[in-house]
Every structure is written in C-alpha cells, then in structure tokens.
Design a protein around this nucleic acid. Structure first.
Lengths: 233, 233
DNA sequence: CGGAATCCTCTTCGATACTG
DNA sequence: CAGTATCGAAGAGGATTCCG
C-alpha cells in the first residue's frame, strides 16, 4: 500500500511506477493470451508466492490494468482479465520479448518452460509486412496446448485455445518454436527436420513461412526460398 | 551480486532478469540521449544513492548494456555510454513512454522535471509516416537545454546538444512539450498560444507539425490544418 | 570530481502455514 | 481453489566517510 514512486514527471517513470515492480510485467504477459484463474497465474509465475500475487493483482486492479470477472457458464470460475488499458501494454511486453530473444539461448536446466511463453515470443517476431492486409488464422499446437493466431493488416492477436476455422495448423514443441522466434531456425528448416508439422493448404503455409521468416533474409526472397525448401522435402 | 532471476525459459523473463530491477530502465533512459557522467546520472535519478547507482552500473556493464569510456579531449571526463545491445533497448523505453503518456497529466508538486525526459516522450510520440523517407533535422531548446532530433525514414535519433545545421529550431518549456507529446495540445496550438517559438522555413515547420501531429486527426488533414492555424497567426 | 565502502533503518520479497 | 497471516531474508534508501 505504500506505493513507492520515482516522483519524476516523465512518461517512462510513470509507466514504471505502475508496472515496474517485480513480477508485474510477467503477470501481464500471462494475461495477454487470455483470462486466467489465480491458480493458473501462480503456476505461470512460480516463485511469486500467494501473498505477493494477491498484492500485485489488487494493485493492478486498482490501477485499471485488469479486472476480476466470472467466466460465463458452464465454466463459472473467477478469473482475471486485462482491461483495455492493460491490453495496451502489449507493445511493452512485445518490445521486451524482442530484446530478450537476443539473450535467449538453450534453456538452462533450472528453467521452467511454458508453451504460452513461446507464443508470446513468436508474436514478437512476426513479420507482419509479409501478409499485407490479408486476414489469416493459424492454430498452434505446442506440447499439447492449443493457441490461435489471427493476423490481419499490421495487427496480430494471439490467444489460448483452438481456432474456429484455421487456415493452417502448426504443431511442435516449445523449444523449437522459441528457436524459430529467435531466428536461430527457420520454420522451413524445422519442418524439414521433422520438428514441426503443418496441416493446411500450400498458400497459407507459404504466407505463414513468410510471416515467421528468418530475420537474416529479406521478406520477398525469403518467402520464395522457404517455399522451395518446403517443396523439396 | 546475488542476481535474482525468474528462472523462466522466456524472452520476456530473460529481458526482465537483466533490465527489470528498480532504476535500471530509467538509467537506460538517461543514456539514450547520449553519454553521461556519474554525477549527471545521480542527478537524473534522484533518490537512487551512490551505492545503488554503482551497483546498477556494474551490473549493466557486466551484461554488455553499457561501457565506461573517456570522452575525447578537451573534455576528457569519464562517462557511461550504451553499447549497441544497450541502445537496442530503445524500443522498450519508447513503448513504456507511449504507454506512460496515457497516465501522465499535470506534474505533481513533488515531482521533478527534466527537459531530457520530455524529449524521450516526444520521440515516443513521433508520427514518422508523416516524413516518408525524408531526412530532416530539428533542434529543440527546452528550458535552456539543447537537443537535436534527426528524422529519416522510419527512424528518429534524439540526442543532447545542438544540431549542426538544423532545418528548424523549436523553443519551449518541458511541460508544454510533454503536453504536445501526450496529445493534449497540438504543436500548432502551442505556437499560437505563444508557449512554443519556431525558427526556420515554412516547409520544415509544416513537416515538423505533421510529425508531431495530434493523434486525434489523420495525418494529411492534420498537416494542412496545422499550417492554416500557423498562417492565421 | 568520481566513485567505493560502511552503517542503519525501512520496505519488499519469498516461503510456508493456515482458513473460507 | 482462492486467497490471508506470518516471519525471516534480501534489497532499497539515506547519510556519511574515505580514497584517487
């Protein structure tokens, strides 16, 4: 309740007054893919402890970043979800993810792994220019969990759960997807290596490869090359 | 030295392991506009204390975010400057700034004010589409301090110090510029009100107004309206 | 000036135990 | 499952001192 602030008339400082404390942005990361129960949050933030999680949730609710709601029947469970203001933190989390990807190599033994985290990383590495306004829906199945990614114009939505009518289904494991997001592996290479399987028409696959293209090559060329690599299989 | 980490195999968590501690991102903010001496940093981060600043600097140097160097003669002072990795945190700070601007109203009495902070906010609110590849240099004189802003393509560089041959000089105070950055005031309105003065040709002014246009109006229209407002003066 | 080191107080964190 | 209560450990903050 003491609310320590930087007391600086500065937009960055003000932002950090609200979301700069330990765990806070990771909590937002958890909620970006959809509403979560207290237990889910606890699981995705192992080490936080129930007291601190409660405190952070109260704080963020007070600042209008998230709200408590009850899921419609038959679920009926109490969950936390981002408000519009909270969702507008997405660019902050995405920017952190892009930067963090530079530092992320193989997982250390003591580190936990979650499929949802790979999805955030994936979102942060999308090359949205490659789809130029086209609307496309992909379903990702990562280590048993499903997510859907909707790409349209210069926006991408990534949420937990299956897609209704996906143009493409991509299956793989967390570590492979993180490698793709980090640019250490192209999606085409991962497919060739059998680490990722896809299901859908060739056109969607080509566009998905482009959107997830490796950063090293330029957009247009990358698309064609990746398609060749895929067809050569 | 204990290096508390989240131990999550996640790009966001990894980023926050490095720059998520208290003061760290504000320290990066300070260095974004150019190298600074220990004393300058202390001044821009009042409340941090020499011990903690020293610790953070060591930490960031160890992580390759910044380095200690000696300024070329005649200055010769020891300064801290961002490495390439450190500078690549700019999008993170900018994203925080954009978000923080939503929360930033009038300064509270206990809050400090710095011209450089307004410049960061200004950078975060630039509409770079409005200059479409054109290279332009603006000099800002804010409460006695000078900064130069170079806009080219989709990139903008904001640094302390005067520009060599600016296309436009904009003079004003910190709070007015923050209001412009926050979109509560258009640059044109501020000029009309006498809170901001400009010096330079009309074309550059028009483009500068566009780049700093209020978010509420669309780009092209805003330019013409702002020019009319200016000419009507 | 540019730090490093120490001491002391206070706040925050983290872990566990306990309750509705 | 969703928290509250509690307590030791770690970190922050402020002042002051010392060194190069």
């Amino acid at each position: 309740m003491s609310r320590r602030t930087y007391d600086q008339y500065c937009a960055v400082a003000r932002a950090l007054d609200v979301v700069g404390e330990r765990w806070t942005l990771l909590l937002v990361r958890e909620l970006l893919t959809g509403p979560k129960r207290f237990k889910d949050l606890l699981d995705g933030l192992s080490g936080i402890g129930t007291s601190l999680l409660t405190a952070r949730l109260k704080d963020l609710e007070g600042n209008g970043i998230l709200r408590r709601t009850t899921l419609p029947p038959p679920a009926g469970s109490k969950v936390y979800e981002l408000t519009d203001l909270g969702r507008s933190l997405e660019p902050v989390v995405i920017a952190l993810s892009r930067w963090g990807l530079k530092l992320l190599e193989a997982p250390r033994p003591e580190e936990e792994t979650r499929a949802a985290w790979a999805m955030v990383a994936l979102q942060s590495s999308l090359k949205l220019e490659a789809v130029r306004g086209r609307k496309e829906t992909y379903e990702f199945r990562v280590d048993g969990e499903s997510f859907h990614v909707q790409v349209e114009g210069d926006e991408a939505e990534v949420r937990q759960g299956s897609a209704v009518d996906p143009d493409l289904i991509i299956s793989g494991d967390t570590e492979t997807l993180l490698s793709v997001a980090a640019g250490r592996l192209t999606l085409a290479e991962a497919i060739e290596a059998g680490a990722i399987a896809t299901e859908g028409d060739r056109g969607s696959l080509a566009r998905c490869l482009a959107v997830l293209g490796s950063p090293g090559r330029d957009g247009g060329k990358s698309v064609r090359e990746d398609i060749r690599a895929q067809q050569a299989r």
